[in-house]
Amino acid sequence: MVKEVEKAGFPIVQMCNLIPVAKTVGSNRIVPTISIPYPLGDPGTSKEDQWKLRYHRTKVAVESLGIDIKEQTVFKV
């Protein structure tokens, strides 16, 4: 899906935990998440910690759409 959206000309960032999968699939902008069942908030941590993590990683993802890249890039979080 990511590739189709990108082919249509939209910059797209994939937020996912399995970076090797995103790389194999051919996503160009990748932002890591913390797990598969809860990519953006570990229920084992406090509500506040979950929010901080989600806010931070989502922000990195939004900002990645404004950054020119030359090759497949995993953005640091």
Binding site: V5, C16, T33, P39, L65
Partner: peptide
């Protein structure tokens, strides 16, 4: 997305 003039997309995968 095109119709609404979307500029960029976030995809969350699990």
């Amino acid at each position: 997305l095109k119709e609404d003039g979307v500029d960029g997309v976030i995809m969350v995968s699990t």
